[in-house]
């Protein structure tokens, strides 16, 4: 098990190196960083000094190494557009995105699994068929349309919920949370549904098809032949086996939620890192783009690592070190 995890960690590190290289290349080769950082009034000395300061006169590998070690210490340079350190801006905005992603992720996973299991068990039921048909619309409905639709119904027509922003937030250390005020919670409802709905549909469809596959297996037939109760068969025998492939995808989906937050944040003007990123793309603010890329890569890689470790708890076949027999 330890060997497996070490191999995984090494692979993750490799992925991060590649992503770092991409981010660095963006920073280094898209436009001229010196051009971008200095205003109109600049002298030859200014340019020379900045080149030296940025280390642009050194060889590529040296520059890359410097970039990585700076990034590892949380220094991602200065935003072209705002003129402030990127790390500072990111830190300020991260709580908004993380709270939104966490709430909608939990929503998507919990409801996705519940609906998936329900539609698999009641395969030919009316309600199950209805949910399945609705889910295909859900897959075809782009996230931003869901958001607009919700705003139209609940903000414009009914006026129940706010259509933009986070509401009131409470500052706890560097973390600003919207979870502790009534207006913050109200503001969270529509964005988290918007963000979670698509992922929920995907998880539900996957759980359903995996569960149907598992229910066809011999060991389920054998469990039935032993007279086990339906509840035990569905939830103890089938669901556990269903979760093995589903967990991988859920891991990927959690990553996707962080990325899709960009769209939701744009629709609801949610002050998170996603909105920051999309503005950076619009204005070609390369340091912000590069930093965002690095940041969420670390998150993705972390999530994947957690998923791999989760496997050990679910699937005994992977715990090779205690294998006997044969």
């Amino acid at each position: 098990m330890l060997a497996f995890i070490i191999r995984r960690v090494l692979q993750s590190a490799l992925v991060l190196l590649i992503v770092g290289l991409t981010a660095f290349s963006m920073f280094r080769f898209v436009g001229d960083p010196v051009d971008n950082m200095l205003g109109q009034e600049r002298t030859a000395q200014d340019i020379e000094r900045l080149r030296e300061q940025l280390g642009l006169d050194q060889s590529f590998p040296v520059q890359y190494y410097k970039f990585l070690s700076e990034a590892a210490q949380g220094n991602f340079g200065v935003s072209y557009r705002q003129g402030r350190p990127v790390a500072e801006i990111l830190l300020e905005r991260a709580p908004a995105t993380l709270e939104l992603a966490a709430v909608s992720g939990l929503l998507a996973i919990a409801l996705g699994i519940a609906f998936g299991v329900f539609t698999a068990i009641r395969r030919n039921g009316f309600l199950a068929n209805f949910i399945m048909s609705a889910s295909l619309i859900g897959v075809s409905l782009p996230t931003f349309l869901i958001g607009i639709l919700l705003i139209y119904v609940f903000s414009v027509e009914l006026g129940w919920l706010p259509s933009f922003g986070r509401g009131e937030t409470v500052q706890i250390g560097f973390w600003s949370t919207g979870l502790l005020t009534a207006s913050g919670l109200k503001a969270l409802i529509l964005p988290s549904i918007t963000l979670g709905l698509y992922q929920m549909t995907l998880i539900m469809r996957l759980v359903r098809s995996e569960m149907l596959e598992v229910l066809r297996q011999d060991y389920i037939r054998f469990a039935r032949a032993r007279g086990l109760r339906d509840r035990a068969i569905n939830f103890r025998h089938a669901l556990k086996n269903t979760m093995v492939p589903v967990i991988t995808v859920i891991g990927l989906q959690v990553g996707a939620i962080i990325a899709f937050a960009i769209i939701t944040e744009t629709v609801f003007q949610w002050p998170g890192v996603g909105l920051l990123f999309i503005n950076a793309v619009q204005f070609v603010d390369i340091p912000v783009m590069a930093a965002y890329l690095m940041l969420i890569s670390v998150m993705f890689v972390g999530i994947n690592l957690i998923v791999d470790i989760l496997y050990f708890f679910i699937d005994p076949r992977l715990r090779v070190d205690r294998a006997g027999g044969h």
């Binding site: 992925v15 990927l252 990553g255 899709f260 960009i262 990123f277 950076a280 783009m289």
Partner: peptide, 13 residues
């Protein structure tokens, strides 16, 4: 590992 919409945004940027 990266959602394709994000990759597309980066390439676009």
């Amino acid at each position: 590992t990266f959602p394709s919409i994000l990759v597309a945004m980066l390439i676009f940027g």
